[in-house]
Amino acid sequence: MSTRPRHGLVSLRGLSRDRLEGLLDRAQSYVGSQVSSDLAGATVTTAFFEPSTRTRLSFERAAHRLGAHVMDLSPDLSSTTKGESFKDTILTLSAIGTDLFVVRHWLADAADLAAEWSGRPVINAGVGRREHPTQTLIDAMTLRQEFGHLDGLRMAIVGDISNSRVARGHLEAFPTLGVKLTLVGPTPFLPNHNPWGVRVSTALDDELGDVDVVYLLRMQNERGAADAIPADQSYARRYGMNAERLSMLKPAAVVMHPGPMNRGVEIDDAVADGERSLILEQVANGVPLRMAVIAEALGGWG
């Protein structure tokens, strides 16, 4: 292993274009690669305090493909888990022997605190409504594969943005990578302040002809989204991506979704399963991208 300083990935905020592109390059090099032993002997601990099978398994597989050992500590989510026990968990797993934590938590500062408490690098696998950095990088990787570049692309992020950590990760990284973002949704779903200085629109149909990427988000009813708009089908009518709206896109434009999808709400089957959809490509890029982030965090490339 190299002597590169170890650092995790808690937030994409302020990361340089060089570092972001380096991660994407590295991830691309892992596509279709054989299992490596770059990180043989390292222990990666996944600590997921919110239910998430897909992301956790993707991280596990990424760690295995690098030769690392994986410990999973995902507490019994049926019981209420307090931050205090979160601290105990992190300290205990540090003492047992962990080289890297992968943390998902409903608290916004969980990844920062895990790093502070443990002194180990931490990869944020989705905290609070704050950021989900690996999802953002997966999407950047997928778009670069599709278009061959990122600079100058226009992306509309559509839906329940105020509850979305995926959107907040995108807002921190995509502008750095040269992608122009527009947030689209009904006002109750839009952040009520705009520290990123991005375009905001409530009229999806006005945006569709201008963008290269339509990035759809689900309504997070577990975070109260259902109470923010009328309980009828009006959301799907105004913002659902359907065949008619698909026809309004530029010929080369694509549709993405971080999953899980609510088919028939923000996305129709014809769109999700259609030829403009990059949704399965996004999923497939999860493992190589997370391999790159894990390898970077543990100094596995020089």
């Binding site: 916004a108 609070g128 409504r129 704050r130 907040r168 952040p191 009520n192 302040h193 990123w196």
Partner: peptide
């Protein structure tokens, strides 16, 4: 406070 920082960090705000 529901403002620039809460929007950025995704913390539930107090308007």
């Amino acid at each position: 406070h529901e403002g620039m920082v809460s929007a950025r960090l995704g913390i539930a705000g107090l308007p």
